[in-house]
């Protein structure tokens, strides 16, 4: 998963652990209350028990220590997110988190930038296009690879997987640029979509094949005996069975493309076609200082679609990496 889903996940963690911390605090408090009363009773009985008391103190120290540690860790992860949440609404954002002087002017300023909103639309086009292409091709290829006996199939898959890091890697950028120029794909969404999809496909096929392998062939054979054609088998049986896999691949492809910087940066000259990741890089003053007001605001807008998609798909399908349905 790319870096863009990480904020979401750590946010969820923070939330859960935060709640856990509260619970521990409550427990610590109640135990703290319980100890003096116990001491009271023991004093009434005239029999002080030092062992019991030191035990209680040790326990309290452990609880406080654990809470402090958790708070430190949480703070470490929460601060950047807090910055992302507050800075866009701050009249004078810095690189520190502070209570904002509330304003929506930053959004106004961002909308005045001619490329900000178009870049998000471009990101959507490129991510959506790549996801559709990757899911379609990966599903078909994985189905074929899973069902047909192809000699050297596993070797082929591993070689593809190995090469995929080269295809979209920095090392291949010059030949890729050359290729895109000759094909007339410079400055087109298609060029970006094809390049990024090419890099994602091998891993996508690999994951999808695992889903396909986990689906017994008897479903398809049963449909075949009832007279279903190959197309009908694919539509009625195979695709519904591997739907969680398709969802996983789609989300993964979108998140990857959404966060890609280098390929669109090189393949697109026209800022009208540049995606969010590239436009984010242009939000500097002429002197080269970062415009924190614009960067923070844009970062927030830029992260939201991926977070929303992640939550939606996770609710709807759930992410399962072993999608075989038990019979």
């Amino acid at each position: 998963m790319s870096e863009h889903s990480k904020p979401e996940r750590s946010q969820a963690n923070r939330h859960r652990e935060g709640r856990g911390g509260e619970v521990t605090d409550e427990r610590a408090e109640s135990e703290g209350r319980a100890t003096p009363s116990e001491e009271g009773t023991s004093r009434l009985k005239g029999r002080p028990e030092p062992a019991e008391r030191s035990e209680a103190i040790r326990h309290a120290v452990a609880v406080i220590g654990r809470a402090t540690f958790l708070a430190a860790v949480l703070g470490f992860f929460a601060l950047p997110l807090l910055w992302l949440a507050t800075a866009p609404f701050d009249a004078r954002p810095g690189i520190t988190v502070s209570v904002p002087e509330f304003t929506l002017r930053n959004f106004q300023a961002l909308l005045d930038n001619p490329y900000a909103l178009t870049s998000l639309r471009n990101s959507l086009i490129q991510a959506g296009g790549s996801a559709v292409l990757v899911v379609t091709l990966a599903a078909l290829a994985a189905y074929a690879l899973s069902r047909a006996r192809v000699p050297g199939r596993d070797a082929l898959l591993y070689v593809l997987l190995l090469l995929s890091s080269v295809v979209t890697g920095t090392a291949a950028m010059v030949p890729l640029f050359e290729l895109a120029t000759r094909l007339g794909l410079i400055d087109t969404h298609l060029g970006v979509v094809l390049t990024l999809s090419g890099g994602l496909l091998p891993a996508a096929i690999f994951i999808m094949k695992d889903f396909m392998d986990g689906t017994p062939t008897s479903y398809e054979e049963s449909a075949r005996v009832f007279g279903a054609s190959s197309g009908q088998i694919l539509r009625h049986v195979v695709i519904p069975l591997v739907r969680p896999g398709l969802a996983t691949i789609a989300v993964w492809a979108v998140a990857n493309v959404w966060g890609s910087f280098l390929q669109p940066f090189i393949l697109l000259r026209d800022p009208d076609k540049a995606p969010g990741a590239v436009i984010l890089y242009t939000l500097y003053t002429e002197g080269g200082a970062p415009r924190l007001d614009l960067i923070s605001t844009f970062s927030l807008l830029y992260s939201l679609p991926v977070v929303v998609m992640y939550v939606f798909v996770s609710r709807r399908y759930g992410f399962r990496f072993h999608g075989g349905i038990k019979s």
Binding site: S218, A223, V225, L241
Partner: peptide, 12 residues
């Protein structure tokens, strides 16, 4: 019509 050992009922 064939009935398979695992029944092959479509789970969806």
């Amino acid at each position: 019509a064939m009935v398979f050992q695992d029944y092959a009922l479509f789970p969806h």
